[in-house]
């Protein structure tokens, strides 16, 4: 503990004089989760790209990008940014809402501009700008797609993500959307947004249920595992698999008209780019950027797939 505090102090001392800013240089801190799964990988990619681009465009802006592997680390990152870089704006994608609310509120009270991305804080009115993902819409759009594809009803299995409020919100809205359609969820397990876990869970679903009409994998990484398990089993009864998030391989399969992957639902990791850019614009200009900005989840179909395909992104 002492050592850590000491290191922090040393960093602060070292950083202080060197980075003493000119009055016209402003610093934006960006704090996001580390790239531990596909979607977060995309997030990191877009964040880095945007930072590089904006640093060129606006020489008067300086960026600090920190990736955290847990909420506690994220809190430390933010505290360090405030203490050692004296940031003027913070763009944060909270690992979890509850533990980050207090620390981010403290940053806002200093008068620092705060942009929150994707996951909201537990208390309203802290942030100046909220670029929100649409988890409710994600579940709803997915559910509506199922209702449309299976008008006669049918038996489906669901793979859920890591147990979190995001996952709950998506699944609740999915269930609401298929209510009364005759679609029955015969199995629901956590695949943790992980390909290997999804593969295992799907293999066991296939052992357990002799008839499965469709699979809501609820995530493109999980869809990869699910598709591999179905192909291995040689089963013909599964009509289609719906993932989610907009991974480039899946969007490509949609575009190519793959029967097993008729659609995808977006939840673009690129929302971080939007958030950083809007924050930058807000700092350097007088353009009004505060408020709430929701990036809706939309259905990707063979018709519109081309506009959601980013071949250069790792995700």
């Amino acid at each position: 503990m002492n050592k850590l505090a000491y290191l922090g102090l040393a960093a602060a001392l070292a950083a202080g004089p060197v980075l003493a800013q000119d009055d016209d240089t402003q610093v934006i801190g960006v704090s996001i989760p580390a790239a531990t799964h596909g979607w977060a990988g995309g997030l990191n990619f877009h964040a880095q790209q945007t930072v590089e681009r904006l640093e060129e465009t606006y020489p008067q802006l300086d960026f600090v990008l920190a990736t955290a592997s847990g909420p506690a680390q994220q809190v430390n990152d933010i505290e360090d940014m405030v203490a050692t870089r004296n940031i003027d704006a913070l763009v944060v994608l909270p690992f979890e809402s509850e533990p980050l609310t207090g620390p981010v509120a403290a940053v806002a009270e200093r008068g620092t501009w705060v942009t929150v991305v994707d996951r909201g804080l537990s208390q309203e009115g802290i942030e100046d700008l909220y670029v929100a993902g649409d988890n409710a819409g994600f579940g709803r759009v997915s559910g509506q797609f199922f209702a449309g594809r299976l008008p006669e009803g049918g038996k489906i299995v669901v793979l859920r993500g890591i147990p979190t409020t995001i996952d709950n919100e998506r699944v609740e809205n999915f269930q609401a959307a298929i209510e009364g359609t005759g679609i029955e969820i015969i199995g629901m397990e956590h695949g943790n947004w992980n390909r290997d876990d999804a593969f295992t869970v799907m293999q066991d679903f296939l052992s357990r249920h002799p008839q499965i009409d469709a699979v809501w994998a609820s995530d493109d990484d999980m869809a990869v595992g699910v598709l591999a398990a179905i192909r291995q089993s040689g089963r013909e009864d599964i009509g289609f698999v719906l993932g989610g998030a907009g991974m480039k391989e899946m969007v490509k399969r949609v575009a190519d008209g793959d029967a097993m992957v008729p659609a995808d639902v977006t939840y673009p990791p690129g929302m971080i780019a939007t958030a950083i850019e809007m924050t930058a614009v807000g700092l350097v200009s007088d353009a009004p950027v505060s408020g709430r900005f929701t990036i809706g989840s939309v259905l990707v179909t063979p018709e519109n797939a081309a506009q959601f395909y980013y071949p250069d992104s790792p995700f």
Binding site: A35, T36, H37, G41, R195, D196, F199, D221, G225
Partner: peptide, 12 residues
């Protein structure tokens, strides 16, 4: 050969 891919979450 199972999934033909590797990522940061492989082998976690």
């Amino acid at each position: 050969p199972r999934l033909g891919s590797a990522s940061a979450s492989t082998g976690l």
